[in-house]
Write a protein that binds this DNA or RNA. Structure first.
Length: 408
RNA sequence: GCAGGGGUGGGAGAGUGGUUAAAUCCAGCGGUCUGUAAAAUCGCCGACUUCGGUCUACGCAGGUUCGAAUCCUGCCCCCUGCACCA
């Protein structure tokens, strides 16, 4: 594959504030590629959140592309910087992590990341390696590479500066420290979310100071959540977790609004832009239904994360359960065991039992009553109008999507 | 430290002595519709209840009152000016 072809693939999906920057970055990338050596690519991840979502994998997919082209990929755990707090998501609390927790999180993180990355070709590093024992002398030296004006250029800061909102020094330092990572890794390319542009650019500034060829920064769009509006995140509840079982993932993907489908295709599947275009054309001339496009999306994503057979299986499950409204054969189970008879009350069971995502079927007796009175609960396919006692073998449906089978 | 403003349900935000489990909006949940989309529409949205009610709730702790989210006292926290420091 020639260099232009490579850079075209690699630059695909990148998003910069301005077009000029993109062109420059592409040029720099091509120059680096033309050197014919494996490049050092990295992306940093904040280890405070352990459960990865589909949002996390878009940078990983990019790293994967580099791996496939024979470059060196470093998966950098932001063990140290994560503790300082990033201004780009200021309102999130960052709990202090102990070293053990950190290690644990990192392990968990990478385990999940290997759904995308090739473990054999991935180097795991954590930036505490070099940041933790940085002396104040070295630290001040790093600081002297930046001017305040450079920081105030950043949108996030300049807005707050103008409106007299607090800007903490630690926030400045965050970018600085992160920039130092690039130096330490002798990075050729850093991948990140588009909200990280400033931090990635800081790496370039420092690299120049350290006589390194500045890294190419590749920023990728932020994935919207299942609401189709705001960034996917666990804390906003609009996420699809990487670890969710295929059936559930399929359902969640089916629930995204139509206007998010395109970006999901681009960022989370290997379907080419051309092929996607063909699909939308097929919809335009009624050869394909919109829901089938979305199903294809779900199948593509799940195939990538699990396997083709799990993907088709979850599609079948979806069709049977939600489209044909059949009672599924697989569902959560509740073991009745040797409970007292008053423990067999449906309401009690619904309050006690958790869904796989940690939610309860119902949070209180009042809620169960509400659900029953609103015709939301059925047992063995029949709506019930009062709290009943259940027995082994009963299949309960709550709302449209929640099922529970009573077992021994 | 001084002055001023404020802390109400998941969020935003009304309410300044009883008719307030607390307007309204958002989010959430459920019904109908449907493509687990969007839109629409109807209903629910503190807990418990023998469905008559009962209990708990408006930063925390006391007090006044037949009765307080609403008034008083003390405390805690947040914001905005100013001062101190430089």
């Amino acid at each position: 594959m020639n260099i232009q072809e490579q850079s075209k693939i690699l630059m695909n999906n990148t998003e910069y504030g301005d077009e000029k920057l993109k062109i420059n970055m592409q040029k720099e990338l091509e120059k680096k590629l033309s050197e014919g050596r494996p490049l050092n690519i990295y992306c940093g991840y904040d280890p405070t959140a352990v459960d990865l979502t589909l949002g996390h994998i878009i940078t990983m997919r990019k790293l994967r592309e580099f791996q496939e082209l024979g470059h060196n990929v470093t998966f950098l755990i932001g063990g140290f910087t994560g503790l300082i707090g990033d201004p780009s998501d200021k309102d999130k609390k960052r709990p202090m992590l102990s070293h053990e927790q950190l290690k644990n999180n990192a392990k968990e993180y990478t385990r999940q990341a290997y759904k995308i990355l090739d473990p054999r070709l991935t180097t795991i590093r954590s930036n505490e390696e070099w940041l933790e024992n940085l002396s104040s002398k070295e630290f001040i030296r790093l600081c002297s590479k930046f001017t305040v004006a450079q920081f105030l250029e950043r949108d996030n800061f300049s807005k707050r500066w103008k409106s007299n909102d607090a800007i903490y020094l630690s926030e400045f330092l965050y970018a600085l420290m992160q920039g130092y990572d690039a130096v330490k890794l002798a990075s050729d390319v850093q991948v990140g979310g588009s909200d990280q542009l400033f931090n990635l650019m800081a790496g370039r500034i420092l690299q120049r100071e350290f006589n390194q060829d500045p890294q190419v920064v590749m920023t990728l769009p932020i994935l919207v959540g299942t609401d189709g509006k705001i960034r996917m995140s666990k804390s906003t509840g609009n996420f699809i977790g990487l670890e969710e079982p295929p059936n559930e993932m399929f359902g969640k993907i089916m629930s995204i609004p139509d206007n998010a489908v395109e970006s999901y295709f681009k960022l989370l599947t290997s379907v080419s832009d051309d092929d996607f275009l063909k699909l939308t054309k097929a919809i335009d001339n009624k050869a394909m239904k919109k829901i089938d496009l979305k199903k294809k999306l779900a199948v593509e994503i799940i195939t990538g994360l699990f396997s083709i057979s799990e993907a088709t299986q979850s599609e079948k499950y979806f069709e049977e359960t939600f489209q044909k409204r059949n009672i599924p054969s697989i569902m959560n189970e509740y073991s009745l065991g040797y409970q007292e008879s008053n423990e067999c009350k449906l309401s009690k069971i619904l309050i006690k039992t958790q869904l796989s995502n940690g939610d309860k079927y119902a949070s209180s007796l009042s809620e169960v009553r509400r659900l029953i009175s609103q015709n939301a609960v059925s047992v063995n396919g029949l709506k019930i109008d009062e709290d009943i006692e259940v027995k082994i073998g009963d299949e309960i449906r709550v709302g449209r999507y929640k099922f529970l089978r009573i077992i021994q």
